[in-house]
């Protein structure tokens, strides 16, 4: 296996492991983008009507990321 690919795989494993150690994989932006990519490819390839499902899954992942990003204990973004 080429060294560069091996290094990337090692980084992925370490990153994923550290997220799990900190209470689970909390940031899944890459997964959301992959779901959107797959849905668009299937739409282009065979006009699949179910592609709204991965789009909604990506949005749900986005909502999870957004809720974790908002610090509800201090503010909701409104700074007076």
């Amino acid at each position: 296996m080429p060294m560069a690919i091996r290094q990337i795989l090692d980084k992925m494993l370490i990153s994923f492991g550290s997220r799990r150690a900190n209470g689970g994989p909390t940031d899944m932006m890459t997964a959301a983008m992959l779901l959107l990519t797959l849905s668009c490819i299937f739409l282009w390839w065979n006009k699949a009507q179910w592609v709204w499902l991965p789009v909604m899954a990506a949005l749900i992942i986005g909502i999870v990321i957004f809720v974790q990003d908002v610090d509800f204990s201090t503010n909701l973004g409104v700074q007076l």
């Binding site: 992925m12 994923f16 997220r19 940031d27 899944m28 890459t30 983008m33 992959l34 739409l43 282009w44």
Partner: peptide, 19 residues
């Protein structure tokens, strides 16, 4: 659109990984 979204997914992976 598929090409643009795929490029975005690659860029997000390069920026964030799984963290």
């Amino acid at each position: 659109l598929a090409i643009v979204i795929a490029s975005q997914a690659i860029l997000v992976f390069m920026e964030c990984g799984f963290g």
